[in-house]
Design a protein around this nucleic acid. Structure first.
Lengths: 331, 331
DNA sequence: TTGAAAGCGCTAACAG
DNA sequence: CTGTTAGCGCTTTCAA
């Protein structure tokens, strides 16, 4: 009972060589029917499971997928990860999650860990493009919500929602509700996501002949920061009749701030969020938002990383998932 | 640039033996000042990081902590994990997260993975006591929110909030608000957490000479299930003037259901939740709840698992964290 | 169809 | 203070 059994022990009990046990485990076919049965039975009896470190060392690849994510506390990321993980479990790939806490230093550390663990693949969410100078070498990697490099290395793919279209949908919904003087509250500065959503938004306004939006830049991507950003603008005399908040948390902070100043929603100001997480329909005022298709995206990420690991799907390039407008009580 | 450099290569470049490089890396002291400097410089230059699989194989322990958790989508767990992870990062221990999705089969699979990875330690949240028959062998393990075994194996500790006291606080707050006919909506059946919170609640009622609570058992621990459970009771003619919901999600669903039936809160019915996650102050009606000290608990978990790994702190036993009442607009 | 043997990259005696 | 050596548990040629 003491320590765990090794492949060698299984071999001993089954009266075959370690090599044979290995072959059976990996189903590579070069063994007889009866040998297979005997070995499998013993494996079962002993509750044997192969040592992943030995296996990984030998194959120079650990059967584990690394996920790098800015903040698991964010429901959007948590849900995405959950879908990915569930799907990956069916392929017998566990998932190691590395949380960067939106800090560049931590992100760098995460990259080192991922590499040191020799993960089979990486799903890299919202990463900083300036980082990772070849750290990941040729490990299959899918970047989520990151601008594609001009000349990506091999074994790289890009996935994101159609953020630009999301910006457009938000603008159109706001204009449809009668807004003429628009604002936008941005995600983290310089982010791919932020840039795209803003571009789609600004472009739609321009096409409709409406003045460029007032840009609010909260100090963080939180309820509190959004709250404060809105008050700051209001107090400085800034005025708008419609605002697109680039995440749902920002939207809920903005709504609270507006209400606290006696602004009526959607009477005086209309609001649109982004993500469609729980708060968007469970906050004091359920708000209109842009929904990302987390399920489809998560499943795609899992399936694709597996394909990449097994060398199927050598194509690279970008996959974009459509977003949709969810109308609620703020527009 | 191709593949990553090995310890052997570093040794070659530094003109020393692999053993020496290993010693320097592990700071075990048996080398000269100048050797150390030279080796460290080369390591830096080459961006070398040791192969964890080889290291782990040799030491028969992977430098990684496994966290088994029912649902990362749950803000309470997500926050706890985040704190744990941040703290563990400082000790250079990455964290692998295994999500059981509240499913017993998946939980079993998680256990196998954890073992196969030879993790250095396990933080096992809300686990099913009937599972894990010696799977974890003597891997240092901290169980969170699980009933202590009568005769725990070595290298095991138990941590939880003072759930019983939480139940008591809820009961007292409700009674203080004038409730005389009480209800409780439970967490998953048979859970340690559920049992403790209920015990504290029921006990406080009894001591005050109030009838035992009406028990509502939602089909899942979600907003929707709670909503439905309340309607079911109401429609069946069940009545109460105060309800303790064992999680915040349940509370918000219950509140929504009550309001949908024209019940006034806190006029007709008072509500208390548990956890103090974001929705508790950002939902349509900010509600009174019992706050768990996630920060303290998370830091304790991380520090303690490290101590256990290094063989300090051989004491076993249970650590309980106090909870506190947060009063809002539902009592 | 099977076995023997080498070796993945690292650490830990044991010598020196 | 440093080098030599053996071996962790597995996979994979190469032979048989």
């Amino acid at each position: 009972m003491g320590r765990s059994v090794s492949l060698k022990e299984i071999a001993g009990r089954a009266g075959v060589s370690p090599a044979t046990v290995s072959r059976v485990m990996n189903k590579n076919g070069r063994y007889s029917r009866e040998t297979e049965e005997r070995v499998l039975r013993i494996i079962e009896e002993c509750g044997y499971s192969p040592n992943q470190m030995a296996r990984g060392l030998r194959m120079s690849r650990n059967q584990i997928i690394g996920i790098i994510v800015p903040d698991i506390t964010n429901e959007y990321f948590a849900k995405l990860i959950q879908v990915v993980q569930n799907t990956l479990f069916d392929f017998d790939y566990p998932v190691a999650i590395y949380n960067t806490n939106e800090s560049r230093d931590t992100e760098r550390k995460c990259l080192r860990y991922v590499k040191a663990q020799d993960v089979s693949g990486v799903i890299y969410i919202n990463g900083d493009s300036s980082l990772e100078e070849g750290q990941l070498q040729d490990i299959p990697t899918i970047y989520v919500d990151r601008a594609p490099a001009e000349k990506p290395r091999a074994k790289v793919r890009y996935v994101s929602s159609d953020n630009r279209d999301g910006g457009r949908l938000a603008a159109e919904e706001l204009m449809r509700s009668g807004c003429r003087s628009l604002a936008v509250m941005t995600e983290r500065e310089g982010t791919y996501v932020m840039t795209e959503r803003l571009a789609g938004y600004a472009c739609a306004l321009e096409q409709a002949g409406i003045a460029p939006p007032l840009v609010l830049r909260p100090k963080a991507i939180t309820y509190e920061a959004a709250y404060e950003a809105v008050l700051r603008v209001l107090d400085a005399g800034g005025r708008f009749d419609g605002i697109f908040c680039q995440t749902d948390w920002l939207a809920s902070g903005a709504i609270a701030a507006l209400l606290s100043r006696g602004v009526s929603i959607p009477g005086d100001v209309r609001v649109v969020g982004f993500d469609d997480i729980s708060i968007s329909h469970m906050c004091s005022l359920p708000f209109t938002t842009i929904k990302q298709d987390i399920d489809a995206m998560g499943r795609y990420l899992a399936d694709t990383i597996i394909d990449m690991i097994y060398g199927r799907d050598e194509s690279s390039g970008t996959k974009i998932f459509p977003v949709s407008l969810i109308t609620r009580r703020t527009t």
